[in-house]
């Protein structure tokens, strides 16, 4: 084994992968970490294994942020999402390197995944100030009333990312949900920690208000039941659930009539296809509000 004392080589500074809650990077309150190794078995990093309590803390942070995020102008939300894309673009080399080193992607695949993730953020950024026009409308009621319907954010949304495509899979489910004005807690597999926390650093420097996106890495079988039965979560989206998990999620969600959205997992190249960026990935996390007012002198 070579040491700096023998060779004058520089000791690298290893990154600690923590969680991203309320704009801060805390360790899991449980103190648990999991050693991540690459394909050849070499140690990559220690990743945090989020606990049920971390999830609850993240929901508190999201709830705190939800109202003000939904209340920002659509133009501002749009600019903030676009800013996140800019931040990603400026870190594309480091993100690509993480996908290669920590997640075993080829350079080409990693680059493609980063590019598609940036483009996806840009695409959803553009929707923020168009949703209301495309999904809302005036209703020609048969009477002297002004009546209109417009979409509003559902509130606090918990997302479970799939096993494949650790960056694009995450961006593809987070972007449509925050674009609609929701606050998010997204849970990724522990093995995704390096790129998930790199993405958290992108968000932390994007003018995104603290708590709008909270990122956890952990075991789904530990976190899903807590999310399903939590009383202050408005909607849950999940990718790649087993039938057992679906029953658990939808059954638990019924206690507070949570909205549930379930999709199948896909490979990075499949996630990259344009049909996985859709207006109809935003709508499951929106509510329609219809307002009436009499007209007359």
């Amino acid at each position: 084994m070579k040491t700096p004392a023998q060779t004058n080589m520089r000791l690298t500074v290893a990154k600690t992968y923590k969680l991203f809650i309320g704009g801060a990077f805390p360790r899991t309150e449980s103190g648990r970490s999991v050693a991540l190794r690459n394909r050849s078995g070499e140690f990559v990093a220690n990743a945090s294994r989020a606990s049920r309590k971390d999830l609850r803390e993240a929901v508190v942070a999201a709830r705190k942020a939800a109202e003000s995020w939904a209340g920002r102008t659509a133009y501002l939300r749009s600019q903030i999402l676009y800013r996140a894309a800019e931040m990603m673009e400026s870190r594309r080399e480091s993100l690509t390197a993480t996908l290669v080193k920590a997640h075993g992607k080829t350079a080409k695949a990693a680059e493609a995944e980063v590019s598609a993730s940036i483009d996806r953020l840009v695409w959803y950024a553009g929707w923020c100030d168009k949703l209301t026009q495309v999904l809302g409308n005036q209703n020609p009621v048969a009477g002297p009333f002004f009546n209109m319907s417009s979409p509003e954010a559902t509130g606090v949304v918990v997302l479970f990312a799939g096993e494949s495509s650790p960056l694009l899979g995450l961006v593809s489910i987070v972007a449509p949900v925050i674009c609609g004005g929701n606050a998010v807690v997204a849970c990724s597999p522990i093995a995704h920690a390096p790129i998930v926390i790199d993405f958290a650093e992108v968000l932390a420097t994007s003018d995104l208000p603290a708590g709008v996106v909270n990122l956890l890495t952990g075991n789904r079988d530990e976190l899903l039941p807590t999310a399903a039965s939590h009383r202050d979560i408005d909607a849950i989206g999940a990718v790649g659930l087993s039938m057992e998990e679906q029953v658990l999620l939808e059954g638990g969600a019924s206690a507070t009539i949570k909205r549930v959205w379930i999709d199948t997992d896909r490979t990075s190249s499949a996630w990259a296809l344009a049909d996985h960026q859709s207006l109809y990935r935003i709508t499951p996390f929106l509510e329609v509000k219809t307002s009436w007012h009499p007209m007359g002198l």
Binding site: A142, N147, S149, S291, W292, H293, P294
Partner: peptide, 12 residues
């Protein structure tokens, strides 16, 4: 607004 219990087929 300034009304209540109004319904219409065109109104969600």
């Amino acid at each position: 607004g300034n009304s209540f219990n109004r319904f219409d087929a065109t109104s969600p």
